[in-house]
Amino acid sequence: MTPHSTLTERYVAAAVRSLPENQRDDVERELRASIEDDIDARIESGVSSDAAERDVLTELGDPSGLAARYSERPLYLIGPTNFLVYRRTLVLIVSMVAPIASIASGAAHALAGDAIGEIIASVVVTAFTSAIQIAFWLTLVFAVLDWSGASRRGPLVPWTVESLPDVPERRAQLGDTIASLVFLGLAVAFVFYQQFLPVAWNREGAVDAPLLDPALWSSWIPVILVLMVLEAVSTIVKYRAGGWTWPLAILNIVLASAGGAVVAVLALAGSLYNPAFFAAFPWGTSAGILGVIAVGTAVLSIVIALWDAIDGVVRTARMPRGSRA
């Protein structure tokens, strides 16, 4: 044994530890001989024995990496063969299960009569933990597939031309148009609905007071309704024109900014919501909570308006040349 056997011994032991029993002795003997050959050659060329040993082992690298090469085990969790299947499955399951689970959890807390804060917390925590759980178990399953060599036979779900999605513009145009019209219809319906029918319940039963300040019917609610109708008309015009054009994008910016600004200013001025509506709840008279609701509404309406305006511009810029004139 050479005097510097310790590091080499430790290296060889670490490298062969995870190898199958029947290979271990053979690899160990060969690897030790190779390392010692290399060390001797370096000592002969004038390097000190300690430095030579360190250099040789450093060049061989992490012993676990060497062991993986000997046993031809992958050095990744999920390889390229199944990575796309893994990512698609993960996105699909998380986007389906997490919302359902979090809404169910929120509904359970609401039915149990818990405070609003508790309900929101349960929704957020459930969404987060269900996503984490799904990601963990799915990653584990795919990692075992790779580790066991099952991925060598090719992807679990082979790709075929049939799985090609529709061309984004055509599919998006019809989908977007229907989604926008349905959303606008629901919004208009809600404005009327909340005036005459209850939208919330407290411990005594339905809250009869409207959510929006009834004084707005003679001032800003008509303006908001007109903006929504104009938005619906421009959506239909856009579909019939075959997609976004620059005039429509500019009209969209104007409508979005006007709507966002009206709602935000009314919310900040404290004249959007009906004070009688919030007074039906034990927390509804706290200036702090009403302030948070006002600022939250303002921020949300501005963010939605900005997103809507930018989305229109981006989609117009992405339209094929010649069709957006």
Binding site: V27, L60, G65, L66, R69, Y70
Partner: peptide, 12 residues
């Protein structure tokens, strides 16, 4: 060739 590539390659 790196040593850590060659030695496992010979076994393969």
């Amino acid at each position: 060739v790196d040593a850590n590539t060659l030695y496992p390659l010979l076994r393969r």
